[in-house]
């Protein structure tokens, strides 16, 4: 180790230590879990590729995507995904017209039922996609939600 990188390391460790003292240090595995590339993707198919390594999906009748036909307030759009597909590993919800389409991904452990519900922001009228990974394959359901007032303005 040369002097420069030694000093660099000392500085870095020092910074980390002071961050830890300030209560800002993160549990490493949780920090690593956030998929920056997928969440920053501008196209929803790119986001799915980044997340699952592939974007070839089958439309499935076995995914129920519940969302309003018309959302009066785009800042709070309730979305529920339900599926009876066997061995569900993950459910993702994507809003196609949002600046970053991927809104949320839920990774399931053993014992989870195929159900996830949350509330999302939608900038404008858009297709909402529910992507379910089950038995290693990707399935999707799509629904258009019309937005009267966008949820991304100030």
């Amino acid at each position: 180790m040369n002097r420069r990188s030694f000093l660099h390391n000392v500085f870095r460790t020092g910074t980390l230590a002071s961050l830890a003292v300030a209560g800002l240090a993160l549990p490493k595995q949780l920090l690593a879990a956030w998929n920056q590339k997928a969440f920053k993707s501008k196209q929803y198919t790119d986001a799915i590729s980044e997340l699952y390594g592939s974007s070839s999906m089958e439309e499935s009748d076995n995914i129920i995507l519940k969302a309003p036909d018309i959302a009066e307030n785009g800042a709070v759009v309730p979305v529920t995904v339900e599926s009876e597909l066997p061995n569900i590993e993950s459910i993702s919800i994507l809003v196609e017209a949002n600046p970053s389409p991927l809104a949320a991904e839920f990774n399931f452990g053993a014992g989870m039922r195929g159900y996830a519900s949350t509330r999302l922001k939608m900038g404008k009228t858009s297709n909402v996609h529910a992507v379910v990974k089950a038995d290693g394959k990707l399935y999707q359901a799509t629904k258009e939600v019309k937005v009267t007032i966008g949820g991304c303005g100030g």
Binding site: A104, S117, R119, K121
Partner: peptide, 18 residues
């Protein structure tokens, strides 16, 4: 049981059900 990743598109004061 569940590990989720969220973006800024999840609404203020997030709601979650599983």
């Amino acid at each position: 049981m569940l590990n989720a990743q969220w973006s800024v598109a999840v609404s203020k004061n997030p709601y979650l059900a599983f």
